[in-house]
Amino acid sequence: MNSSTGSTSTGISVTLEKGLELLERMMLIRRFEERAAQLRAEGLIPGFLHPYIGQEASAVGICDVLSPQDVLTSTHRGHGHMIGRGADPARMYAELFARVGGYNQGKGGSLHMIDTELGFLGANGIVGGGIPIAGGAALQFKRTGSDAVAVSFFGDGASNEGSFHETMNMAALWKLPILFVCENNLYGEFTRQSEHMVLKDVADRAPAYGMPGVVVDGNDVIAVREVTKVAVERARNGDGPTLIETKTYRHRGHFEGDMAKYRPKEEVEEWMKRDPLLTFSTWLSTERDASKADLADVRSRVDTRLEVAIAWAKEQAHPLAEDALNHVYVESFNGEALR
């Protein structure tokens, strides 16, 4: 039950075609976030943004292994998970623009975005808030004999919340079909990991609850995919949960506008060399003979798709102010909003 380290990328079973697909998904996240930051600067996005840039391999590696019936909970930094799962960037932008065409009809924004058809149960504005909810979905799967799996993404900071510890204990106790995915980007908001916990690896918390903990290079999409396969199989077989710690780094601040001056320059430079898109593109070129044109095509497809999405989102209607009174409850009373 000791935590172990996932093997680094050996490229098992990844063809050029599959590799380009994974790269495109990662690129879609990267460019979605970069464009979102620009659009926010232009005044189109009124609320918070917590960019996922730098962590793309983690979301894509995990989501690539999942099946349609599986569900996910996410975090304040949720765009990557959502796109990794296959969400529509147009409806995401529309939500960020607070339009009725958005995933949440403009009532949620970045922090609460959902896609029920994809089993994406939501980003979450509360650190650690999604963890017990994923646990509950897994409990329902277990109780009803479903072979679906729940995945909860969270960060190193959330692993200090009670919600994490309570759910880890219950999930191990009941052998729930769940993956706890700690994306350790080394900072809980502005505080570096060494200042918020003694352990070096969050995965070391897993054995304390009686479940395996795995550390993997979170910037290596293939390595993430491989450890995920093992954990998903374990969950589907009824053998219980796994804690996967993906070691990664956010290239930008905690939120858009945070200059992240609390991080040493050398550390940032070191991680930039390990940019998951850069390293995976290089790997595809050297190990799978991807041509420059192959890689350029990926970028161009992504950019075209996003510009179409942004244009669509900009055309979506603004909600009416009185729409604020809808959806407080599923049921109204005597035809009136419940007061």
């Binding site: 909970t73 909810i133 897994a138 329902q140 799967f141 009670g162 919600s163 309570e166 219950m170």
Partner: peptide
């Protein structure tokens, strides 16, 4: 177990998927 946040969270999650 005695874990109120985990219990109510589990109920919320179960409710979101049909319980």
């Amino acid at each position: 177990p005695i874990s109120e946040e985990g219990i109510v969270g589990a109920a919320v999650g179960a409710a979101l998927v049909g319980g």
